[in-house]
């Protein structure tokens, strides 16, 4: 078997993504502090940048408690599933021309598959804790992620029709004329909302709503297992941002005074900041509001979007 050099990317990608997730936690806290007119973590190192390391040391040295009343195997498996499935999905993200681990004809489906496997981490975490808050949080997470998965996939089909391929490299290349955010603006908004709900971040963090469920599905988690669940959440946010950029904002494409990878990183950072801004700006909806928004508004909207895009593509083909 010939050696594929792009596989060398795997280790730096996995390590880099985890370290970056750690620093995004600090960055988020600083930005939230700035937007909410307070300081945020600014004591450790310049601008508090080493706060991320301090947090990691704290998580690693904390007592890692296993609930004696729960299901041990599932309890240990759940954080690994959350992080594992998210890291797997990074495999298909094209960071620059030729700079991807793998590109296949089913790249988008692979991303959807991995994000749907991530549900198991949350569900099993809630189930194995054997605690009513964790159970309720797990049930909420399961229903929410299943609901939003449905039209997350549908909202991307417009882009697939435009590009004529499921391959992310082909999709980026076909955006040389125009970014898909213009012809697919409906799909873009639906994907943004669905991505937010899939990564269950505020304002859609109902699975872990702290005022009603203590900490939801990860109530019983402590130490590094809790750290892994948090890392999984930030990885999901990074992945969603990277995919928003790849699918709707031309990926690595940009004026040639900067290298393509830098364009990709800048755009992704912008989307991540937008996600953080959403967290600071929008209150959490009620759970039934979240569900009816999904099934009654976003699902029909994404179907209509698909229908119109398909009709236009058919008319243009003739």
């Amino acid at each position: 078997m010939e050696l594929n050099w792009s596989y060398l990317l795997i280790v730096p990608l996995a390590v880099g993504a985890l370290v970056l997730a750690l620093f995004i936690v600090w960055w988020e806290r600083r930005l939230l502090g700035w937007w909410q007119d307070r300081l945020g973590p600014n004591r450790v190192g310049p601008f508090g940048v080493l706060q991320a390391l301090a947090d990691m040391v704290k998580l690693l040295t904390k007592d890692d408690w296993l609930p004696p009343f729960g299901d041990r195997v599932f309890f240990i498996m759940a954080p690994a599933i959350v992080v594992g499935s998210m890291l797997m999905a990074f495999v298909i993200v094209p960071f620059g021309p030729g700079l991807h681990v793998t590109d296949s004809n089913i790249a988008i489906l692979f991303f959807l598959a991995m994000s749907s496997l991530a549900v198991y981490g949350v569900l099993l975490g809630g189930l194995s804790s054997n605690n009513k808050y964790a159970m309720l949080g797990g049930l909420r997470a399961g229903a929410q992620m299943l609901t939003y998965e449905v039209f997350m996939g549908l909202s991307l089909m417009g882009v697939v029709i435009h590009a004529g391929s499921f391959s992310l490299v082909d999709i980026v290349e076909s955006q040389r004329g125009m970014w898909y955010v213009l012809p697919q603006c409906v799909g873009f908004f639906i994907f943004l909302i669905a991505g937010l709900a899939e990564s269950h971040r505020l304002p859609f963090d109902l699975p872990e709503a702290e005022h009603e469920l203590t900490a939801g599905f990860h109530t019983e988690y402590s130490g590094m297992k809790f750290g892994l669940i948090m890392a999984g959440e930030y990885l999901a946010m990074m992945l969603t941002s990277a995919l928003v950029v790849t699918l709707f904002f031309g990926g690595w494409l940009g004026p040639s005074f900067l290298p393509p990878v830098v364009w990709f990183a800048l755009k992704t950072a912008l989307v991540i900041n937008f996600f953080i801004l959403l967290r600071a700006a929008i209150p959490r909806p009620r759970y039934d509001q979240l569900m009816s928004l999904g099934w009654k508004v976003l699902l029909p909207l994404s179907l209509v979007n698909l229908l119109v895009t398909g009709a236009i593509a058919l008319a243009a083909a003739d």
């Binding site: 959807l112 749907s116 496997l117 549900v119 198991y120 569900l123 189930l127 399961g142 229903a143 299943l146």
Partner: peptide, 9 residues
């Protein structure tokens, strides 16, 4: 990703 999740649910 969907059907067995519902079973587990």
């Amino acid at each position: 990703g969907a059907i067995v999740v519902l079973f587990l649910f």
